[in-house]
């Protein structure tokens, strides 16, 4: 995947009323690299992801793709460049799996039906669900639904992928299949920001691990440094609890 770009968040601030959720987040992801964001719940991880594709506009700070600020861009156009996968999949239940994948191809990319269908089926094939094209999301397991959601995002050929606790809502036996798809994507050179509680995945797949707490990145570095030579006491305490 040669279309990936680098991503950088600079001093991102965001408050919901008096609640300061992000208090100056810095995050750098090289082109084709995978950054895992870990941290306790309520630390602002999911909110950070939403500021990166401007589902939520940051109050202050900057978001850069390929070194260029995207805060002045048309947000809808920006989001077509950034794929996002959610904890609850957010598939459209009133459409078949195939329509879920083709909807944006047809409406936003203006592809014809045949072309969109072919592209969508190829994408479903990649996540191992070619046979489910005509099923409804509700007929699939959580793991399958999440793989459809990944296919839906990838069909638009994004330059960056964001994963918001993509496996947190899954039964334990279904987690592996989704993580495998994500690891393949990472290996293929997609730039990824992965908010996750799967420490094994972060250790194995991430190029960078960022530990967030109370709205800031307290410590970031390669997985070995974070998991074996953690400096900050709060990170050590967190790791002691989750590992």
């Amino acid at each position: 995947m040669t279309t990936s770009v680098s991503l950088e968040a600079r001093d991102v601030h965001l408050a919901f009323g008096p609640n300061r959720v992000l208090r100056g987040v810095d995050l750098t992801v090289r082109r084709g690299a995978t950054a895992c964001v870990i941290g306790p719940s309520g630390s602002g991880k999911s909110t950070l992801l939403r500021t990166l594709n401007r589902l939520i506009e940051p109050d202050r700070g900057d978001v850069l793709l390929d070194g260029r600020s995207v805060l002045g861009d048309d947000p809808d156009a920006l989001r077509q460049r950034i794929g996002m996968v959610f904890q609850q999949f957010n598939l459209f239940p009133h459409m078949t799996v195939l329509r879920n994948v083709t909807l944006a191809l047809r409406r936003l990319r203006k592809l014809g039906e045949d072309e969109a269908d072919a592209l969508a089926r190829a994408q479903l094939e990649l996540v191992g669900l070619a046979g489910k094209a005509n099923s409804r999301p509700a007929q699939l397991s959580g793991g399958q639904q999440q793989r459809v959601a990944i296919a839906r995002a990838l069909a638009l050929k994004p330059e960056v992928m964001l994963f918001d606790e993509a496996t947190s809502a899954l039964d334990p036996e279904l987690v592996k299949g989704v993580l495998a798809v994500m690891a393949d994507l990472s290996a293929a050179g997609m730039t990824m920001v992965v908010v996750t509680h799967e420490m094994g995945f972060a250790r194995r797949v991430a190029d960078t691990v960022a530990f967030m707490d109370r709205g800031v990145v307290l410590e970031a570095g390669p997985p070995e440094a974070i998991f074996e030579r953690a400096e900050h006491p709060r990170l050590r305490r967190f790791l002691a609890q989750v590992l």
Binding site: M84, F86, F92, A104, L108
Partner: peptide, 27 residues
Amino acid sequence: AQLEGARALGFSWSDAMRLVIIPQGVR
């Protein structure tokens, strides 16, 4: 979350309403 899912794909608010939210709500 349905609106968020549609917006994340790059749909405008009105397209997301028209294609995703209203058909479900009306049903």
